[in-house]
Design a protein around this nucleic acid. Structure first.
Lengths: 121, 121
DNA sequence: GTACTTAGTACGAAAAACCATACTGATAGA
DNA sequence: TCTATCAGTATGGTTTTTCGTACTAAGTAC
């Protein structure tokens, strides 16, 4: 699809699919999934480099706290966007990477960034 | 662009543009703009029918409170996504509609809904 | 003069998100 | 024995969102 899709074209294609009334809207839950202060940045870091260790992520997202990073990663893992691989070594090593479900979000990010580049100065 | 764009293709095209480090990321502010419990649903209602009066919107988003609807609309207007037209009548009449900037979000919603339809059961 | 209409405001309470700081467990190396 | 490493937990506090309820202004119809 191109950037200049009109409202009518969109409506014609998915108009009857996006429904907020009965809770079947396929957009709202996605945005909800990406909410929170850190999730997008975590996904972005995992786009840049993957896999990444907990400590590496923490370094990249500098002012983040252990708690927030842990929670965000747990939720992302729970939503199936991030894979957590734990190695039983001492000191512990845990590596995070994007799942296919996670990388499938890239077209979304691409569309958003197109809009952002047009409208954000 | 198509739905099956790979990570490498995305990186090749916008890899150097999306930057969280220096705050120039064109994705984060967009998602931030759409955050909040009601904004997406308001935009959706205005996609379906436009213009809409305050009371009509309120009826559609049933459990929403006056305060939340007012705040969300003010922020959407402030972000330039929604246009507010006030008629000096009694009782008052105010009509809301999407701006071009707002309708330009439709490709984003389309991309999201593609993802959603694939992954949300 | 009373009730009804619409598009909000005002204000306080509840809930959710976020933050700061301290702490743990298991081992390796000095 | 002492210290360092790593991936988190625990706990309590602050800030931001959201909710609930009551209220306003200005005119119109009765």
């Amino acid at each position: 699809m191109n950037q200049s899709m009109t409202y009518e074209e969109f409506q014609a294609r998915v108009g009857s699919v996006i429904l907020t009334e009965n809770g079947n809207c396929p957009v709202t839950p996605v945005v909800q999934m990406l909410q929170g202060k850190w999730k997008l940045q975590i996904i972005y870091e995992l786009c840049i480099q993957s896999p990444m260790r907990f400590g590496e992520l923490k370094k990249m997202l500098k002012p983040i706290t252990n708690t927030m990073l842990t929670n965000a990663l747990k939720e992302l893992e729970g939503d199936g966007l991030v894979h957590r691989e734990q190695y039983n070594e001492i000191p512990p090593r845990v590596e995070y990477s994007l799942t296919e479900k996670g990388t499938d979000l890239l077209p979304v990010f691409y569309a958003i960034s197109q809009w952002g580049m047009k409208y954000i100065p």
